[in-house]
Amino acid sequence: MTTRTLLNLITWSLVFVTLQVLLFRNLALFHYGFCFVYVATVLMLPFDMGLITAMFIGFGAGLLVDVFYNTPGMHAAATVLVAYLRPFAIRLLMPPRGYEERNEPYISEMGLPWVLTYTALLVLVHHLAVFFLEAANWSLWLPTLAKVGVSTLFTTVVITLLQVFRRS
């Protein structure tokens, strides 16, 4: 990994967390659609990024977001889970011809359908963890599932749009 890629990753991590804390924290569509755009700090990591580093990045980003949401540990737990499951998702979504060397999870390299599936899958994992931890009981499972569904759609769209923006 070159210094330039590293700087790029750090800058965008900061952008995602700042967006989350200052903008998306105050935004809820119809009380059901939330956007946790900061998950992109983990999703955008290159494929050859070590699992351990990825988990630490996820933990840091999650904990930082938690401070502002008054939910210490909740986002950290969900984001570490996403970081841990990411290699499985990447293996699951492997194209027939396999990955080429130095591939990154970007539209320019993997195509839009692949990026959408990859993002939606991991965002779904994250949102399931966050909303069920947050509800802390099963009696509200139906509204919670509705929140998970709507928010997954919302977050996936925003993260993908931001990626288009980032490349240009």
Binding site: M55, G62, L63, P72, G73, A76, A77, L81
Partner: peptide, 11 residues
């Protein structure tokens, strides 16, 4: 370890 730490903080 990270999950246990997070959930411990949370609960």
């Amino acid at each position: 370890a990270l999950e246990v730490l997070s959930l411990w903080l949370f609960f």
